[in-house]
Amino acid sequence: MSFFEENCPEMDRYLENHASAEPEILKRLRKETFQKTTQPHMISGYQQGRLLSILSKMMQPKSVLEIGTFTGYATLCLAEGLAENGKITTLDVNEELAYLPKKYFAESEFSEKINFRLQDAKDFLKETEEVFDLVFIDADKENYAEYFRLIKPKVKSGSVIMFDNVLWYGKVLEENPKQQSTKKIKELNDLVAQDTDFENLILPLRDGVNLIRKI
């Protein structure tokens, strides 16, 4: 949930009313996510989805990696900008929920471009030799710093990496956080800010997106 959703719903509605329309398939997926999952707030949602779509369309990536599929909302947004021969590999470990993204991937116009895998992301990154144009991570926060270390050799100059939830409901401002997830998000943000191979900006959209570009 974003700061505005929690503190200023009128502003949040204004932002949505002045953004590009959400495709019909995403409206249905968002509705079913709220009906059938116990943590529907994990979905990327309207505003963030349009950010992912626009960025993907600007880049027209040939190879996209997503870590953390959930119900597939962000996957479909990222797929909107794929190059003609492009593909997106999306990873998750939740077997019980896998039926939902599979259903919507099959319905979408991007079905042939989506490679949905039930696999641990760290194992995948250690095994793959693929180089990615665009990477989006919205998964277990405790592994964020490790994901960054493993992804670094899998991107090239001009590639973009995005980490979601990097403000962690404002907990990143805690000097001595007790939660391991908060510690790891702060570690990630520090790693990125200090790495001279990248340039970045944290966008205060929803719960914070660290937008990172390989120099």
Score class of each variant (00 low, 15 high):
residue 100 L to R: 07
residue 111 S to P: 07
residue 93 V to A: 01
residue 104 Y to R: 06
residue 120 D to C: 11
residue 115 N to Y: 08
residue 104 Y to G: 01
residue 102 K to R: 15
residue 109 E to K: 14
residue 107 E to T: 11
residue 97 L to Y: 02
residue 115 N to L: 10
residue 112 E to C: 04
residue 100 L to M: 15
residue 102 K to C: 10
residue 100 L to A: 09
residue 96 E to V: 03
residue 92 D to A: 00
residue 113 K to E: 03
residue 94 N to P: 02
residue 104 Y to P: 03
residue 122 K to G: 01
residue 114 I to A: 01
residue 119 Q to Y: 15
residue 111 S to R: 15
residue 122 K to V: 14
residue 99 Y to Q: 03
residue 120 D to N: 14
residue 112 E to V: 05
residue 121 A to G: 06
residue 92 D to E: 00
residue 104 Y to N: 02
residue 115 N to G: 02
residue 92 D to L: 00
residue 112 E to R: 09
residue 97 L to R: 12
residue 110 F to M: 03
residue 105 F to H: 12
residue 121 A to Q: 05
residue 107 E to I: 09
residue 112 E to F: 03
residue 121 A to V: 09
residue 93 V to C: 05
residue 114 I to W: 00
residue 122 K to I: 13
residue 111 S to G: 02
residue 93 V to Q: 02
residue 96 E to T: 12
residue 117 R to F: 13
residue 115 N to C: 11
residue 107 E to F: 12
residue 120 D to R: 11
residue 122 K to A: 07
residue 121 A to D: 04
residue 97 L to I: 13
residue 106 A to C: 10
residue 107 E to V: 10
residue 119 Q to C: 15
residue 110 F to Y: 14
residue 118 L to R: 05
residue 119 Q to S: 15
residue 114 I to Y: 02
residue 97 L to G: 08
residue 115 N to S: 13
residue 93 V to M: 03
residue 112 E to Q: 11
residue 108 S to F: 10
residue 96 E to G: 07
residue 105 F to E: 11
residue 104 Y to C: 05
residue 103 K to P: 08
residue 118 L to E: 06
residue 121 A to C: 05
residue 112 E to P: 01
residue 92 D to P: 00
residue 97 L to D: 02
residue 110 F to P: 00
residue 103 K to L: 13
residue 121 A to L: 04
residue 115 N to E: 13
residue 97 L to A: 10
residue 95 E to R: 06
residue 112 E to Y: 03
residue 113 K to T: 03
residue 120 D to V: 09
residue 105 F to L: 09
residue 99 Y to D: 04
residue 121 A to M: 06
residue 120 D to M: 09
residue 94 N to Y: 04
residue 94 N to W: 01
residue 111 S to K: 15
residue 101 P to L: 10
residue 115 N to Q: 14
residue 106 A to S: 14
residue 98 A to K: 12
residue 101 P to H: 11
residue 99 Y to A: 06
residue 111 S to V: 11
residue 112 E to W: 02
residue 108 S to C: 12
residue 119 Q to V: 15
residue 122 K to F: 05
residue 97 L to H: 08
residue 112 E to L: 07
residue 115 N to A: 09
residue 100 L to V: 09
residue 109 E to N: 10
residue 106 A to Q: 15
residue 103 K to V: 08
residue 110 F to D: 01
residue 96 E to I: 05
residue 98 A to D: 12
residue 110 F to R: 02
residue 114 I to D: 01
residue 102 K to M: 13
residue 116 F to V: 12
residue 92 D to K: 00
residue 109 E to D: 09
residue 113 K to R: 08
residue 113 K to S: 09
